[in-house]
Computed example of a mutant assay.
Amino acid sequence: MSNFFKKYWKTLIFSAGAYLLWVIFCLIYVKFLFPDVMTHLKDDSWKPSDFAISYAASATDSLIFFAVVGLAITLISLRKPEEEKLATKIEFIFPGADPESTLGKFLANRISALACVSPVTKRVIAIQEISEANDAVKVLSKNDCIIKNIHNNHEYATDSMSFGITADEVNIDSDIIGEVNDIKILFDLEDPSKNRHILNGTQALTNSNREFKETFSLSLEPGQVVNYQTSAWLWQPLKESIRLSPPRFTESQQISLYNNTQHVIEFRVGIPNDEDLTFQVQPGRKHEFEVSCCSPGEKVIIHFEKWQLPD
């Protein structure tokens, strides 16, 4: 219901009721309704004037007209905006954009993308090994991202969802400097047959082939929730930071940082719109922290500040 009707519904009902009573009085006066009333008040020979009859007919026509129009407007206004199709919503928000035009389709895609959010993303970052001789560190990353389509009546569908990783050139004894182990979407935790594995097998990264990217489609019904999981590891220079950038609006990132090395490592974490965190993690221990709302492109940056073997 529109704000106008919400604000003035009592006045509108009172006005309509008053006009209805006036029309009923006019119809009684011209003996169209309850003719005995006027016969009793006047006499049997009393007749209404032509003007009164014409006015009563006109008032009745106006009542019927406004009743029909008012009912139609009320039915239209009672429809909730969230029940409209996406194209209609875009027309309301951007009245100058034709939904069928290139601009209209662009706006529809962008708005649809905004409706795919992550209520929570769990990240496990494990520092597996530090090679001071090669100035490199081996990092394992596992992500479990809850993805939800917050549209109430519109499917979310994209052909450009992607996972990518690019390794820096490092000087280690092995030609393999990283691996992508898993990319999957869990639609039903109790029925594995409904789940989708994007990556078949393991994709190795080498100094001659340091980049991996996989693009795939995703379709979610209104309100549908899925788990999007990835797993990869790589060697990277110690001077480089670990950058975590969510591709969609994320309400919460729960990060567990494991130190599986023999070194004591001091970290500094840059958090969007908040102060940096600084902490030390002993060998075989972990440190957990949470990052609140992040927009696409905002990065959580984990810096290696210091590392040393225990005394």
Score class of each variant (00 low, 15 high):
13 I>R: 14
14 F>S: 13
14 F>G: 08
17 G>I: 05
26 C>D: 05
31 K>V: 00
34 F>V: 12
36 D>P: 02
39 T>N: 12
41 L>N: 11
45 S>T: 14
52 A>M: 15
56 A>I: 09
58 S>N: 03
71 L>R: 03
82 E>W: 05
87 A>G: 12
92 F>R: 15
99 P>F: 08
100 E>N: 14
109 N>I: 05
115 A>C: 06
115 A>T: 09
116 C>S: 07
122 K>Q: 14
127 I>A: 04
128 Q>H: 03
132 E>C: 00
132 E>I: 04
137 V>L: 01
140 L>V: 13
140 L>G: 05
146 I>C: 14
147 I>K: 03
148 K>M: 13
151 H>F: 10
157 A>W: 02
159 D>V: 07
163 F>H: 14
168 D>F: 00
176 I>S: 05
178 G>C: 11
178 G>Q: 02
181 N>F: 11
186 L>A: 06
187 F>S: 04
199 L>E: 02
201 G>L: 05
202 T>D: 11
207 N>Q: 00
207 N>E: 12
211 E>Q: 10
213 K>E: 14
215 T>A: 05
225 V>Q: 13
230 T>A: 06
247 P>R: 07
249 F>P: 00
253 Q>Y: 01
255 I>D: 04
258 Y>C: 07
264 V>L: 03
267 F>Q: 00
269 V>H: 00
271 I>N: 00
272 P>T: 11
273 N>H: 05
273 N>W: 00
277 L>K: 04
278 T>N: 13
291 V>P: 08
292 S>D: 07
292 S>Q: 15
297 G>H: 09
299 K>I: 14
305 E>N: 15
307 W>Q: 02
310 P>T: 03
